[in-house]
Structure formats: C-alpha cells, structure tokens
Design a protein around this nucleic acid. Structure first.
Lengths: 197, 197, 197, 197
DNA sequence: CATGAATGAGGATTCATTCAT
DNA sequence: TATGAATGAATCCTCATTCAT
C-alpha cells in the first residue's frame, strides 16, 4: 500500500503547488510548466498524475473546499454553545489576511468557472452543503438555547450565513488592506448575529 | 445611406459583444475572434478600436460598472423615504435571473482578476465607492426618519450592504435555479433591513 | 502641367519621408503608416501615389542613388585636374557623419535586398555605372596628366574606387563614432591614391 | 537506436537552417516556419531552442562570424612569410562564388541591422577586432621582413584591409556574375598590396 | 484627391499534450 | 516512474491593402 500512499502524497504535493501558483498568478497565467516548477518536478509528472490540466483544477477545488470544510468543522466542535460555536466558526473562516487572500483569490477563479461549468458548480455545491450543515447545527442549537430566532429556517439561514461570509471576504479582498481584516471579521460576525436574532 | 457609425458607438457595440461573449464563455475561452464574431465584424476591428485584448476588458469593466451604477442611482431617485429607496435599490440590483446571471458571471471573472491586478481593482473600487454613496444616502435618510439605527456609520453600513448583495447574488448564481431568484431577493432585503435596524 | 508637378512634388515628399523613416527604423520596422506619419499625410495617400509598398522602396532607391550621383557629378565639375577632382569626389561622398549615416543605413538595407532581388540590383547597377563614369573620367584625366598609372584600366579601376569607398564608409558606420569620419575620409582618399599611382 | 542529438548539435542544426533560409530569402521573408522547414523540424522546435526570433539571428551572426574568423585564422597559420600569409588570408575570404554569395547576402542583412542595433553592432565589432588581429599579425611580420611600409600602423592598416575586402566582395555580389569572382579576388589582393607597400 | 475605417492574411509566440528514452 | 524534447493547434497582434465617404 506504500505505493498508493506515495502516489496520493505526490498528488497532494502537486495540488498544493497548483494552489500556490493559481493564487499567485491567476487562472489564465498558470501553465503546467509553472505548476511543475512550483512543485519542483518535471513537466511530465503533472501529466502522469492527472489526466489533463482541467483535471488538476477540478481536483484542486475538491481538495481545497474539503480542507476548508474540515477546518471549519473541527473549529465548531470545540465549543458547546451556539454563540461561541458561531464565533469559532467565523474565526476559522477569517483565519488571517494571508490565508484568506490566498484562498479567496483561487476561490474567485473557481466561482467564475463554476458560474458556467457544472462540474465546478457541483463541487462548490457540495462545499455549500457542508457549510450549510455547520450553519444548521449552530442555528438549531441556538434556537434550542433561545438565543436565536425560533422562526428561522436553519437551512435557509445557514445559506445566508455563507452568503454573508463570502460577501464580506470578497469585499475585504478587494480593499487590499490587511488591517481591515479584523474590522471585516467583526462586521461579518455582527451582521450574522443580527440576522439570527 | 447608412453613415459609418461613430467611433464611440462602435466601441460600445464591441464592448457589448465582449460582454455577451464573456458571459457566455468565460474569460479564458474568449478570443478576439470570438468577440469579433459576436459583434459581427472582422477580427481586425477589435484591434482597431482597442490597444489590445486587456484594454477591451478594462474598458468593459468600467463600462459595465458605470452602467450598473447609473441604473441603481436612478432607481433610488424615484422614492423619497428610506425604506422604499432601499427596496427600490435592491430591486434594481435583482433585476431578473437572466440579467443577473449575465452580469455576475462577468463580474466574477473581473473580481478574480481584480484580486491580483490593481488596474481592475481600482475600477472595482470606484464602483464600490459609487455604491457606497447610494447606501450612505439611504441610511442617512433612514436615520433622520428614525427607521434605521442612529448609531450606524453610514459609510461602513453601506459597504456591508454591498457585501451582502454580492454574497447573496453570487450564491444565487451558484444555485443555478431561476426560481430561487425571488427568494434570494427577499432574503437579501430582509437581511439588510435587520442589519440597519 | 501644374497638376503633374504637384503630383511629383508629393511623391518626392513621400519618398523623403520614407527615406527618413527607413534610416531611423530599418526596413522591417517601417510600415506604410509610419511613412505616412513621417510625411504628415494620411495612410491612404501612400497608396494613392504608389502601387504598393515595394514600389515606394524601388522608387526610393532610384531617387536616392540619382541624388547621390548628381551631387558627386557636380562636385567633380568644379575642378580641372585629376587629383583635385578625385579629392572633390571623395569629399562629396564623405559629406558629414549625419548624412553618411542616414544614407548608408538605407543603402545597406537596399544592398541586402539587391543581393537577392534583381529589380533592386539593376537600380544599383545603374548607380555603379554612373559612379564608374565619374571614376573613369578622373582616371583618364589623371593618366593624361601623368599622375596616375597609365596601365590601369579606367573602367576597372573606377569600380575599385567605388568598392573602396563603400568598404570604408560601411566600416565607419559600424564603428559608430562620428569623430572617426575624418580619419576614414583621409584613409579612403589615401588608399585610392595608392591604387591609382 | 539513434540517440537524441545533443542540444548544442540541434541548435547548430537550426542555426545552419536559419543561415540557409536567410541567404535564400532575406531577413524580412524568413519566418520561423520557414526556418523550421529548412531544418525539417516542427515550428515549435525553434522556440524551444531559442528565446525568440531575434535570438536566433543574434546567435546566427555570432556563430557565422566566429566560423569565418576561425577559417581565416587557420588559413594564415599555414604560411610563414607575410605575403604568402596575406595571399592565404585573401584566398580564404574569397572561398568560392557560392560560399561568398551565401555568406555576404546574410552578412549584408546583418550589417543593415547593425547600423541601427547595438547588439548586432557589437557582435560585428568583435568580428572586426578578430580580423584586425589577423591583419596586424601579417603586417607586423611584413614590416619585419621589409616587404611592407614600415610607417604603417598595423592596427589602422588592418582595418583598411577589412574595409577593402568587404568593399570588393559586396561589389562582386552586386555584379551577380560568378566568373568575376577571380577578377575581384585578384583585384582585392592587388589593391591591398599596393596599400601596404 | 484625401481620409481612415474595415478587412483578413500572415507571423510570432504560447502551451497542453505526446512519447521516446 | 520520471524526464524533457518535440509537436502543432490556437491565439494575439501587425499591417498591407481596399474602399466607402
């Protein structure tokens, strides 16, 4: 089984290289040569591990959104109550200016693609669904605790949470000022709380 | 006796063709040939009117965001009071599934580029600033009327409005279901109202 | 007849513009647009007066070599004796660093073309023949005066004169130092004198 | 079992193809497709081995002038005395009508470019310097032997030798008659001898 | 005559993909 | 497995030429 593992490691290595390259340079500037350079392997390797260029990006989106989801998921597990859970969730989303910039640049590339390509859209949908579960869980708990509006539909409200998170982080990305990160973090949390109450 | 169209008309014609092509096909699939085909002119024309491909997209983003802003701007002028103004604003943003899809696909492409390219970012910033003026005006009026929270900073809150609008519409775009358009419209308006109150 | 004259004037104007452009930019960088810009006329004019781009250059070479020949021709008419005639000839060839640079840049472009294209070659041949006449005249006079070797074939020796002139001026051009102009001038004259004696 | 040719071999192969194409067709008619066709490789290969078209020509001029210099250099090594050395040098320059035509066509293209472009000019300067060394060596020996004018500056005179060689060969090229090759060869040698004595 | 908008062929360049080693 | 040489389709861009006004 060592073989298989090695292969998976190599793939992850390539995906991470693709992620870095994509974040730095953007979709249309990234070539397989550049990804290979980032990964410090030869150009042939990328083709050995992936069917074609598209496949790399498909897998990258899957890999990325899974990683994000796992991080978010574990972050809410640390808390018991709804509001701390929500705070922890938002905190895990607003990791740091560097991480958010790196991820959202790439994520915007993917959203742009997803708006026309159903393969990307479905992967994103899975991510949305996962996020929705997190949100629903928090909301349901909060409703039981009596801290959130009991008339809210957890499913709908959790989608709204994600919409607001993305809206805030995209706008923060466009402002291009690291010191605004905290302000957007707080603003985002405050807005979500207002909506849930 | 059809005279030659004036230069500016032709440029707009090409920009609209570029917009359509971009919306249909996405950034990396759009070639100058395709834009020319959409505009039903020869390939050389695009180069005659624009320095290069990049210039077309730069001008397109400017043209598009200006157009959107004008539409939004005139929509709020129709109302006197804050809440109807806000409703009118949001209504002008959520025009129709077709229009929103067409615009947001292209806008996502531009946001992705703007995240790495300051030229695009500055154009988008101008758009944000314009939207912010609209928001500020509504909020200030609402605060005078006593319908909005008087402690809100109009400038900050107006940015939050835009973030929420974009967040909702991007998510709607990803859901790829036209009938959700109304629901997202209402949801967006409701969320903004909650935040402003 | 005024019409005709005006046309010829305009053509000369365009040819001079082409000469300037060619000297500044070189064959492959010169476009009809550039020539038109140098002549401060619209692009269409160049096509109105000349069949096509090639025709401009053909006529330019003719015009240029005629102009040079006339200048050389009139310069030797000023003197009576062989050696002063020769000196005057060489002086008229080594006009100034600026003029020589301008001419020889263009002339090299034409020689390069002439080496493969018989149309250019024939025009140059006419120039060579004209120069040969000048040389022959000087040599014949010098032989009568007893200052030149009587066994020289005026025809052959005059070709050698031209070869040496071109050789020196091309090398001077490559040295790219204006102050060497006088030295090459003297060296050229001295070499020719040695050959003729 | 033919191994892949080494990179340097392939580059030389391409340079030779470029040389042939350039000689046949001239600077502005040579495309990368044509060079590739001459080399019997695909279009992409030229870009694989060279940064761009310009780089091919830069390297070609370097390669060509080096080759010429080596040939000239070894030709004078065969003789001991000044005049035989000079004869051998001139003989190596006037190789054959075919070779001279092929080289001087290309060389004229480069001289034309060099007159405006310092990169080409510097490469040519290196060639001139190399030729100058050959000439200086011959002249110095001849002065010691007492067969050349002792007052000549070897450096200057050697430049004059090169000017005369180029002047003669360019003129021969323009005459476009192979049978004149010998006559120009002899004429060139005779002229140089007159200048050195 | 003059203008400059429009055309489209042609060329440099890029890059995903293939494949021999 | 891994490499990187080779391929050629695809694309941006240039520019001579045409032609309506």
């Amino acid at each position: 089984m060592a073989r298989y593992k090695k292969t998976e490691e190599k793939k992850s290595h390539l995906l991470y290289a693709a992620f870095q390259a994509l974040s730095d340079l953007g979709y249309d500037a990234v070539t397989l040569q550049i990804i290979s350079d980032y990964a410090k392997v030869s150009k042939g390797v990328a083709h050995y591990y992936f069917e074609n260029k598209e496949a790399i990006f498909i897998e990258l989106l899957t890999w990325l959104t899974d990683k994000i989801f796992k991080k978010e998921s574990s972050s809410i597990a640390l808390e018991e109550k709804a509001i701390p859970k929500l705070q922890s969730y938002i905190r895990s989303v607003f990791i740091s200016p560097e991480e958010n910039r790196k991820f959202y640049r790439v994520y915007l590339d993917f959203l742009a693609k997803a708006s026309r390509n159903s393969v990307y859209r479905e992967i994103n949908q899975r991510f949305y669904d996962n996020c929705s579960q997190i949100g629903s869980e928090i909301i349901t708990i909060g409703q039981k605790e009596g801290v959130f509006n009991p008339h809210l539909s957890p499913k709908e409200a959790s989608r709204e949470i994600r919409a607001i998170i993305d809206g805030y982080l995209i706008q923060w990305l466009m402002m291009d000022e690291d010191q605004l990160h905290d302000i957007y973090h707080e603003g985002c949390l405050a807005s979500i709380l207002k909506i849930l109450k």
